[in-house]
Design a protein around this nucleic acid. Structure first.
Lengths: 337, 337
DNA sequence: ATGAAAGCGCTAACAC
DNA sequence: GTGTTAGCGCTTTCAT
C-alpha cells in the first residue's frame, strides 16, 4: 500500500506527469487532450487508488484547502454548535477545519493564529477577544482573508457575521416591562465586547421607551474570570429588591439561576427571568424563562460562505451580515403546574 | 511582507541552506557548528521573521504535525469538552487538530477519514460508530496510528481510552436499590456500542447482587435517530409503574427528564433519577439526581498522549486505559426546599 | 495534442 | 565545521 504518485501513473501509461496532472485536475478538455487518453489515465488512476499528495500540491499552489476557526472556548455550547455548522459547510466545499480556543486571552489567540498561519490556512474565522486588535493586525499582515463572528472589534475593518443584539435585547426587556416588571436587574460582561455593549444598550433603550430610567445599582458588569463570585455577590445585594433578571448570555444565566435557586429565590414565583441564548439547561427548568435564540447554525454557515467568497475572489469588499434572533418564552405551561 | 525562506537567510549570511536548516532545527550542536555561526543565523532569522514552510517540511519528512479527531457530534457537550482537552494537550506538543463529526454514520465517518488521510494527519483519535469496522480497516491500511475513545469496537485491536462503564453503572443502580427503589426503569441506546452494553450490564448485575431479577418491560433500547419519540412512548407506558429511572447518558436523560416533567411526574417526589454523565442542565434541576461523572478532560488528554507515543515510537504495543468515574448526587439540599 | 523542465522550500546523506 | 546535492510530488510555463 505504498502511496501512488502522478509519476507512477505516468510511467505505467508511458505518458508524462503533466498529462496526468491535467487530467486529474479536470483541465484536460481545455488543453485538448484526446478523450481516449483521458479515459485511460482516469482508469489507471482509479485502479491504483491514486490520491494526490496535498502537501506537494499546497507547496506548489500555496493553497492548503484548510481554514482555521478560533473561538473563546470550543466546549461552550454556543461555539461548539457554530463549529459544527462551519464544519458541515466546509467539508461540503472540500475544506477542512483546524480549531482552537482562545479562552478570551489575546496572548493565547496570538499563539493559535501563529500556529495556524504556519499551517498556511487559507482563511480564518475568529471570534475576537477583548484587546485582540494586535491579533487582527497579525492576520492582516499575512494577508489571509478572515471573518469576525459573534462580536465585532471596534475600529477593525473586516467582514462580520453577528446578530441584532440591541434590538433583541430591547424586545426581551420590553416584553418584561410590559408584563408588569418594574425593577429588572441586568447582569452582563465587561463592555469592551461590542455585542455585549449592544445587549446592555437594548436594556437601557427599552426602559427609555417606557419612560423609565434604569437604576445603576441594578446593573453589573462582571469579569470573565471571576464571574461566579461577582454574580453571587450581586444577587445577594439585589435579590430581594428586584422583580426580574435579564442575563446577557447563557453562561451568566446558568450561574445566576443556580444561585437564585440556592438562595431560595424562585425564578418564577419570585422573579421573572430572561436571557440571551437558548440552552438545553433552560428546558429542564420548572420556571418560565424568556430566551433570545441566536441562529447559531446560520451564523456558522454564513461566516464560512463569506470566507470562501473572499478566499476565492480576493477583490470583494467587506460585508457585514446581521442575522435575526427569535424571542421565545420557554416552559410556560410547565411552570403553571 | 513576502515570505522569508531558508535560502534568503543563507544568502544574506553567505552560508548554505543546510547550515541554516540545522540551526533552526536545533541540530547545530550535534553537528558541531560553531557558536558564533549559530548566533548569527538565529539573529538574522529573527530579524527577518523567518517562519518555516510547513508544507515543504511535511513534503520532505512526511510528517504533518496534525492529528485528526472524529467524534459523533462536536456540538455535544461531552465531545466538545473532550475536544477542548485534546486541543490543549495537542498545542502543547506543537500539534494541530483537525476535527469532524460523524453523526454516528459510518459512511460519513469514512468521508471524514479519507479527507483527513488526504491531509496526511499523523494520527487519529476516533470515537467509532456502530458498524465502523470498515472505517478502522481503512485507517489501518494507511498505517497511521489511531486511538479509539469512549467506546471500543468489538474485535478491533487498537489502543483505547474509556471508563469503567460496568462498575460505574453498577454503583449507581446499586445505590438506588439500597436507598429503597424497587422498580428501576432503564433507558439505553442500541447495544452495539460496547460502552452502552456495559452500562446495561451494570444495571443488571446490580439487581442480581441484591438478589433481584430485572423486569424486561422496564428496559428500553432506543435508536439514535428516533430517540425522542421512543423515550416518550416508553415513559407513557412505564411512568406510573416505576419508582426510579436510570439513563445511559446525558442525551437520554435530558429528553426523558423534560418529558417526565411534562407528564407531571416529578423527578424527585415521584421517581428517583440517575444517569451517566454530568451536564450543566442537571444543576438547574429542582430535584436530586445521581450522576456518574466521566473524567472527560483526562480522557482527551490520555488519548492524545497515547497517540503521540504511538506516532513518535511506532513499535509500542496497544494499550487500553480505563479511567474511573465518580458518582455524585446533585442538588440534594436544593430538592428538600 | 503532448512533454520537458523548472521550481515551490525543505531535509538528509554524503562530501570536503 | 560547513557545503553540495538530490529529491519529496506536484503544477505550470514553454516547446514541439
Amino acid at each position: 500500500m505504498k502511496k501512488v504518485s502522478l509519476r507512477d501513473i505516468a510511467e505505467e501509461l508511458g505518458v508524462s506527469k503533466t498529462l496526468v496532472s491535467l487530467v486529474m485536475n479536470g483541465k484536460a478538455e481545455e488543453n485538448r487532450i484526446s478523450q481516449e487518453v483521458i479515459e485511460r489515465v482516469k482508469r489507471v488512476a482509479k485502479e491504483k487508488g491514486y490520491e494526490p499528495n496535498q502537501f506537494a500540491k499546497a507547496l506548489r499552489t500555496g493553497k492548503s484547502m484548510t481554514i482555521g476557526l478560533i473561538v473563546a472556548d470550543i466546549s461552550n455550547s454556543f461555539y461548539s454548535k457554530m463549529a459544527r455548522s462551519i464544519e458541515d459547510t466546509a467539508y461540503g466545499s472540500n475544506y477542512t477545519v483546524l480549531f482552537g480556543s482562545s479562552d478570551e486571552d489575546p496572548a493565547k489567540a496570538e499563539k493559535l493564529i501563529k500556529v495556524m498561519l504556519d499551517r498556511q490556512i487559507d482563511g480564518l474565522i475568529i471570534s475576537p477577544t477583548i484587546g485582540g486588535h494586535q491579533n487582527i493586525d497579525l492576520i492582516k499582515k499575512h494577508k489571509i482573508p478572515f471573518i469576525l463572528v459573534d462580536r465585532p472589534l471596534s475600529g477593525v475593518k473586516s467582514s462580520f457575521v453577528g446578530v441584532n443584539n440591541l434590538e433583541a435585547s430591547f424586545e426581551a426587556v420590553d416584553t418584561m416591562l410590559k408584563s408588569g416588571c418594574t425593577r429588572i436587574a441586568h447582569i452582563n460582561f465587561y463592555q469592551e465586547l461590542g455585542n455585549m455593549k449592544d445587549r446592555f444598550n437594548g436594556y437601557v433603550k427599552a426602559h427609555e421607551a417606557s419612560g423609565l430610567t434604569v437604576d445603576p445599582s441594578l446593573i453589573i458588569h462582571v469579569s470573565n474570570d471571576r464571574a461566579v463570585g461577582e454574580i453571587q455577590q450581586f444577587i445577594d445585594h439585589v435579590g430581594d429588591k428586584v422583580d426580574a433578571f435579564f442575563f446577557a448570555n447563557n453562561e451568566i444565566a446558568i450561574i445566576a439561576i443556580k444561585y437564585l435557586m440556592h438562595s431560595n429565590i424562585d425564578p418564577h414565583r419570585d422573579v421573572s427571568i430572561a436571557c440571551f441564548d437558548d440552552h438545553e439547561a433552560f428546558h429542564l427548568l420548572k420556571a418560565s424563562i424568556g430566551v433570545i435564540k441566536q441562529p447559531v447554525v446560520e451564523m456558522g454557515k454564513k461566516a464560512l460562505e463569506l470566507l470562501l467568497e473572499r478566499i476565492e475572489s480576493n477583490g470583494k469588499a467587506h460585508q457585514t451580515i446581521t442575522l435575526s434572533t427569535e424571542y421565545a418564552v420557554l416552559n410556560e405551561e410547565l411552570a403553571r403546574k
